[in-house]
Simulated assay, not measured.
Amino acid sequence: MGREMAEEIRICLVRHGKTEGNVRRGYIGCRTDEDLCERGRKELETYKSEGRYPAAERLYRSPMKRCLQTAEIIWPELLGAETCRVVEDFRECDFGAFDGKSYAELSGVPDFQHWVDSDGMGAFPGGEDPKDFRRRTSDAFLAVTEELFADGIRNAAFAVHGGTIMSVMAEFGDPEKSYYDWHVWNGDGFLVTVSEQDWRRTHRFRRIERLLPVEDTEG
């Protein structure tokens, strides 16, 4: 019966709320475990009060504080052991020597210019190769999706990072777009719907909705 109920599932992917590092446009990866800033908390509370985030039966989140605190605001009822899963491989990319620094702080740094010249595709000095990051997050998402179908879950929520969402959408989104084309601002994300039959055949999302109106996001 459970598997029959989960023939179609809805997955809500939310980028965590703003941190101080996000406000100053820093490269905030897995080495910087920041709290949400007050502005970030208030924005999430406003979006929630507007009904932007759907209810869910199970929550998956990155291990980092900003994702936990986002989940505490949006889905506090799902934080118990029975309904919440912490997925280590959903953590943000390791930006290595760039972690915690802003574009302005890195401007003129040879290693940073070399990375920019690679169209953001090169490995971060002392950090992670973007290809490895995308693979680990996509593989983790595949494993979680199998769990959702197996457990008969129809509505799932993900409190994760912008990079994690871009990796998942670039790998499974339809129509196909590049990694950076799937960028979302803090508190925004996507609601995707998949049927088990279609997922087995294509591993593509067929129905994709943006959580926030364009005018409510930063340009």
Rank of each mutant, 00 (worst) to 15 (best):
M166S: 08
E209G: 00
R207V: 11
W199M: 02
V168I: 15
I165Q: 00
I208W: 03
E218Q: 11
T217C: 05
D174W: 15
Q197D: 01
V168N: 02
D198I: 08
K177W: 14
W182M: 09
S178V: 10
Y179Q: 03
R201F: 10
E209Q: 04
M169A: 00
N186H: 13
V192D: 03
V194C: 00
V168C: 07
F205W: 09
E215Q: 04
H183W: 13
F190M: 06
R206S: 10
I165C: 05
T202D: 01
H183L: 14
I165N: 00
N186E: 09
T164R: 09
S195M: 01
N186C: 15
I208V: 12
F205C: 04
Y180Q: 11
H203K: 15
N186K: 06
V192G: 00
W185T: 13
E171Q: 15
E218R: 13
S167E: 07
V168W: 09
G187A: 12
V184Y: 12
D174E: 14
W185G: 06
R204I: 15
F172E: 01
G219P: 12
E218H: 09
S167D: 04
R204K: 15
S167L: 07
V214R: 13
D174G: 11
T193Y: 06
V168F: 10
P213C: 00
F205R: 08
R204Q: 12
E215W: 02
D174S: 15
T202I: 03
Y180R: 10
D198A: 09
R200L: 07
H203R: 15
G189A: 12
T202H: 13
V194A: 03
W199A: 06
T193A: 12
P175S: 08
H203M: 12
V168A: 01
M169C: 07
T202V: 09
V184A: 01
G173I: 03
G219A: 14
M169T: 13
N186T: 10
E176R: 14
V214K: 15
P175W: 08
F190L: 02
R200T: 08
R206G: 13
E176I: 14
V168D: 00
M166V: 09
T164W: 10
M169G: 03
S167T: 12
T217N: 01
D188C: 07
R201S: 07
H203E: 08
G187E: 05
R204M: 02
E171C: 09
E171D: 06
G187Q: 12
G189Y: 14
